[in-house]
Design a protein around this nucleic acid. Structure first.
Lengths: 145, 145
DNA sequence: AATGGAGGTGGGAAAATGTGGAAAAACCTG
DNA sequence: CAGGTTTTTCCACATTTTCCCACCTCCATT
């Protein structure tokens, strides 16, 4: 299970260390794609393949909106090998998409990892904390808490 | 698996480098055809054959619009050999069809490659990003989120 | 506090990739 | 068939990417 927050640097060659706690679960090859709220999603290859398979079978490309969706998800993604030292190489387009520069917040979320610009993450999670009570209520409604 | 975006130049002889990550999967011979949304589709030969098979069985050629579609897709297509250095030679008619000039955005879409005029691609993908909510919904449906 | 190990960071050398152009072959035309 | 033009094959360069090694810091253990 992928959990925790890690602040790592992006070096001059666009390399980013994957937290060592995540490596075993992620395997050797991962897929990084555009996520929601201007962050990047990182998946183990296998999970991504299942997903892409699903996409290409369930979304017929006859429809314009499906084509657009496919292009955004698949073209905007990249399969990346985790190097011998546990780093990934961030493609330029994804780096720009997520407004990444010298540092990145790497966050584990159960079955995927998210990569954030640290400042955006800070703002986002602060505002999220203000919603905590709201969320607690919802969890209560679901009988979880 | 074909994914990612690559900006490559088209030289004076209409040659275009295929991203090296794609070459293994594409094999030596590919088929390039007119695509949807003013881009070109590029398939591995085998995939193309399957596709053409599917089209000819599933689209009854009784209908005039089906015949038109078939002709546009099939007649406008070319089988092209990837040269020793990983380049393809773009036929003039396809180049014009996709408004290609000095540069091309080459994008992987899981089981096919698309070739775009970079500016058209930019406009297109920007408009796609504005549909973020739609994307979020779909991701939810797919259990990715 | 010293030691050892693990995790993260930086940089240099080697290999691969993308691009331009020259030479050779094929083609067309008069 | 000769001349000229286009197409194809081949080679060379420069940049980028990949691989490899060294260092540094933090943490735990003794």
């Amino acid at each position: 299970m992928l959990i925790g927050e890690y602040l790592h640097t992006i070096d001059q060659k666009n390399r980013l260390s994957v937290p060592s706690k995540f490596r075993k679960e992620l395997g050797k090859i991962v897929v990084v794609s555009r996520g929601l709220d201007k962050c990047l999603f990182l998946y183990p290859l296998l999970m991504w393949e299942k997903l892409a398979q699903k996409l290409s079978t369930e979304l017929p490309s006859g429809k314009a909106e499906n084509r657009q969706f496919m292009r955004s998800m698949v073209a905007g993604a990249s399969d990346i090998e985790i190097d011998a030292l546990g780093r990934i190489l961030l493609p330029e387009n994804l780096k720009q998409f997520a407004s990444l520069d010298k540092e990145a917040m790497v966050v584990g979320l159960f079955n995927r990892v998210e990569i954030w610009n640290p400042e955006i993450w800070k703002t986002y999670s602060e505002s999220a904390n203000q919603n905590t009570e709201l969320i607690a209520e919802k969890l209560g409604e679901l009988g979880m808490y």
